[in-house]
Design a protein around this nucleic acid. Sequence first.
DNA 1: ATGGTGGCCCGGCCA
Length: 257
Amino acid sequence: MIRIATWNVNSLRARLPRVLAWLEATKTEVVCLQETKLADGAFDPSPFEAMGYQVAHHGDGQWNGVAIVSSVGLVDPIAGFGRKDLEAGCRILTANCGGIRVSSVYAPNGRSLDDPQYAIKLQWFEQLATWLRECGLPEQPHVICGDFNIAPSDVDVYDVQALEGMTHVSERERAALEQLLSLGYSDSFRALNPEQQGFSWWDYRGGAFHQNHGMRIDLLLTSRLLSARVTEATVDRAARKGEKPSDHAPVTITVID
DNA sequence: ATGGTGGCCCGGCCA
């Protein structure tokens, strides 16, 4: 059995004590991190290595940045899409962890429907789908973990009306997510918890967490071969509380052999 | 109410 988690930490420098404490407490075997906001040269693997983890990092500066932390092996890392011409920022890192291909992804936010970043977001998802097919990843035991910046359906947001006309819930974004699912991937949390809301992000502003004004945008999409082995999917809401939390909570799946 | 909070790094930008 191994557990695989995804956690947008909103700066690994700011969140390092929380991340290390969470690893110590949960002993989660594989953790995909997003928004490390570090360049590779500024990333220090030693605190993870001291806890028995291997780690790969892909970042080039103060924005974005993704990492994979694993205690069950970490080999064959692939940074980006393997095509620098099509890579917008450091938003995807893939490795083999204990026989499972694991991708840590941080999708573009999109900002607003009329912003050029919205089209870039949709293009990024197109490129992701193309790259997955090219690599044959949908036919392998594979999980795409990360902050997709898309709420898959209306039950995944606190107030549909309040978000009308905003990013994260638009038809085109949801279609982009559906395109990934059509490759055979399953939204593991929703598949295992049809009734739970499972929010994973709450705005820092306006007391959103305490009012549970959140969204479920941090997903673990499992390929067909892997989906059959996933027995549990949980959100650790406690990690959103306390001193200097990220605005995202970790989401964890349990995978049996 | 076009705010609010928190991260980047020090004047806005980004989420």
